[in-house]
């Protein structure tokens, strides 16, 4: 059973639909106990980093931290990948989970003397895929995934794949059981389903 956290910001229908399509059993929850005792956790994301505050208010941050500490596989999607870091310039006053180091920043308005559109919307390719990534097993560099976001996480040793738009950013992050993807696997066709299946089968 995968506990899918509903924090009333954005839409989780698509994520649940994709997980169920892959044969996973899901339970949509706001309960810290469900999260604390979860076998697996997915935290879907769409929306503002500020919505993170609701996770704190519902005591889901602490529950997630406890679950992660005992090795429960966790997948954060889009702004919820960003939540794994220390914070974001989108909402300076709101702390992230601080599982990964660094802060998320907005795309620059120009890059290499050209204007850069933002949000970064559309299908972009995964590159520099870390061979030991469990989440990206079977995914080849150059496969396309769907993005829609204006903020991005920095690249470091925990980055499992990068995507290039105004420079490289973290497309996927993975250290042991804690994973995040900046793109929307539930909206990324066969490649996205492959990645979700990898998580379901962990």
């Amino acid at each position: 059973m995968i506990q899918v956290i509903d924090y009333k910001a954005g839409n989780l229908t698509s994520v649940v639909k994709a997980l169920n399509y892959l044969g996973a059993q899901t339970h949509v929850t706001q309960s810290p106990d469900d999260v604390r005792n979860a076998e697996k956790i997915v935290l879907p994301g769409v929306g503002h980093f500020r919505a993170t505050q609701l996770l704190h208010d519902l005591q889901l941050t602490e529950a997630t931290r406890e679950a992660i500490a005992r090795g429960v596989p966790f997948l954060g999607i889009c702004v919820r990948l960003q939540w794994l870091y220390e914070g974001s310039t989108e909402a300076d006053a709101t702390d992230g989970l601080c599982h990964y180091g660094g802060r998320c920043e907005r795309f620059p308005t120009t890059f290499e003397d050209a204007e850069l559109k933002s949000p970064h919307v559309g299908w972009n390719s995964l590159e520099n895929i870390r061979p030991d990534s469990l989440l990206l097993r079977g995914v080849s560099p150059g496969e396309y995934v769907y993005y829609t976001h204006s903020w991005r996480a920095p690249v470091d040793a925990d980055t499992a794949a990068t995507t290039f738009y105004g420079g490289g950013f973290t497309a996927a992050v993975e250290r042991a059981n804690v994973m995040g993807v900046q793109f929307h696997p539930e909206k990324s066709g066969d490649t996205g389903l492959k990645i979700l299946r990898n998580f379901v089968e962990l």
């Binding site: 954005g10 839409n11 769409v46 929306g47 503002h48 829609t148 204006s150």
Partner: peptide
């Protein structure tokens, strides 16, 4: 945008 994000 407030609830669902500007990208939506």
């Amino acid at each position: 945008g407030q609830s669902f994000g500007a990208q939506a």
